[in-house]
Amino acid sequence: MSMSRIEPSARVADQVFEAIHEAIIRGDLPAGKRLNMRELSDELGTSTMPVREAIRRLEEMGLAEAVPYRGAIVRGFTDKELLDLYAVRRRLEVDAATLGTARSSATTIARMVEEFGAMERAVEAADPVDYLDRDEGFLAVLYEESDNAVLVEMIRTLWHRCRSYKLLGAQRAMAAGDGAPLLDHQRALLAAVRAGDAERAGVITGESIDSATTRIGEAIRPASDDTD
């Protein structure tokens, strides 16, 4: 792990949460990793109390779970959770893409082009974390044009909840040496936004999430099958 030590302040609990949360989001604390309070507090330079509070908050977010005789671990992968998360994402993001495209402007398109270029560079560099950050930035530009802050907030919450799944899918595509699945739908989405075709943007968004669901499912099912 490579988490920075926490500087003393009134926000120690928040800093600890943010540090562990970031480590999970970036894959430094992978799915199944035990969240040992003593180890984490030693690395961050704090007492165990703020670490315990951070783990509780992570459990509430669905990023960690308590396992008998092991304590808390970074939440692992299940086919059921994947399908449930991505089904909800599909409903919300299709609406956000449709609404956002209908309200998009030249500025929207310019910002999406910038983020898409960064996505291409991340794929070329085989950097799945940077790719996901840029992909979410690309989509957020469009979704924020929906003028529905609650919708965007719910989508962002789901992105956090399924980050481990998203990371697994991006790593799988990059390991195969084929970045096309990570760029093709977003390239098509950008074209739909440029054309002002809101209906097409919604369709492409749904197809993109369906494709990701299949890719990630193929990655987690062999492990699940081995335990049957």
Rank of each mutant, 00 (worst) to 15 (best):
S2I: 08
M3S: 06
R5D: 00
E7Q: 14
S9R: 01
A10P: 00
V12N: 03
Q15W: 01
Q15V: 02
V16C: 09
A19K: 01
I20D: 06
I20L: 12
H21Y: 14
A23S: 15
A23T: 05
I24N: 11
R26L: 03
L35W: 02
L35Y: 02
M37K: 14
R38L: 12
R38V: 12
R38G: 05
L40R: 02
E43W: 03
L44E: 13
T46A: 01
P50M: 06
R57C: 03
R57Y: 02
L58H: 06
E59F: 00
L63Q: 10
A64P: 09
E65I: 10
A66W: 05
V67N: 05
R75H: 03
R75L: 09
G76A: 06
T78K: 00
D79G: 03
L82Y: 01
L82W: 00
L83K: 12
R89N: 05
R90H: 11
R91G: 00
L92V: 10
A97V: 06
T98I: 00
L99C: 00
L99V: 02
G100P: 09
T101A: 07
A102Y: 02
A102V: 03
A106L: 10
A106E: 15
T107N: 10
T107K: 10
I109E: 07
E114Y: 07
E115I: 00
F116L: 14
A118G: 02
M119G: 11
M119N: 05
V123S: 09
A125N: 10
D127L: 00
P128Q: 10
P128S: 12
P128V: 13
D130C: 00
Y131R: 02
Y131S: 01
L132R: 06
R134G: 07
E136Y: 05
E136R: 15
A140V: 07
E144M: 04
E145H: 04
S146H: 08
S146R: 04
S146E: 12
A149G: 04
L151N: 06
V152A: 09
E153W: 13
R156M: 11
T157D: 07
L158I: 12
W159Y: 14
H160L: 13
H160V: 11
R161W: 01
C162M: 13
C162K: 15
R163C: 09
K166H: 15
Q171W: 06
R172A: 15
R172I: 03
M174L: 15
A176N: 15
A176E: 15
G179I: 05
A180Q: 11
P181I: 13
R187W: 11
R187K: 14
L189K: 04
L190N: 11
L190H: 08
R194N: 03
R194Y: 02
G196V: 04
E199I: 04
E199C: 00
A201G: 04
V203M: 05
V203I: 15
S208Q: 12
I209V: 14
I209Q: 03
D210N: 08
S211I: 01
E218T: 10
A219C: 11
I220L: 12
R221V: 05
A223W: 04
A223C: 02
D225A: 14
D225W: 13
D226I: 03
